[in-house]
């Protein structure tokens, strides 16, 4: 059975992919992120829109295709996410 992921965990997976596992220096395409984060196109579109509007991801238009890279705020968020994931783990909880 597939492991249930919280909304926060999916955001963490997307951000860590855009930080550690990029296809190239220009960023990751939506298709690549869908494969890596394992979620539907409609759901990832909503999440990416939110992450860009919050300044956690940078969106660039390369040859008529949107690519996403993590921003400095995104890196700080991801660091906080990892820290507090450990914190919640100690209570047997997931953030």
């Amino acid at each position: 059975m597939a492991e249930y992921r919280t909304h926060m965990k999916i955001i963490g997976d997307i951000l860590s992919t855009t930080r550690d596992d990029l296809q190239d220096e220009e960023g990751a395409t939506v298709t690549y992120l869908i494969r890596k984060a394992n979620i539907s196109h409609s759901r990832i579109s909503r999440i990416l829109k939110t992450l860009v509007s919050q300044g956690l991801l940078e969106q660039t238009d390369v040859q008529n295709s949107n690519k996403y890279k993590i921003s400095q705020s995104g890196r700080e968020f991801l660091q906080a996410y990892y820290t507090f994931t450990t914190f919640a783990d100690n209570f047997g909880l997931t953030i």
Partner: peptide, 18 residues
């Protein structure tokens, strides 16, 4: 306080409850 810092930084409902 640590939970509050976590909630302020991540917006996690779990951290809010903690």
């Amino acid at each position: 306080i640590m939970s509050l810092i976590g909630f302020r930084n991540t917006g996690s409902p779990t951290l809010f409850r903690l």
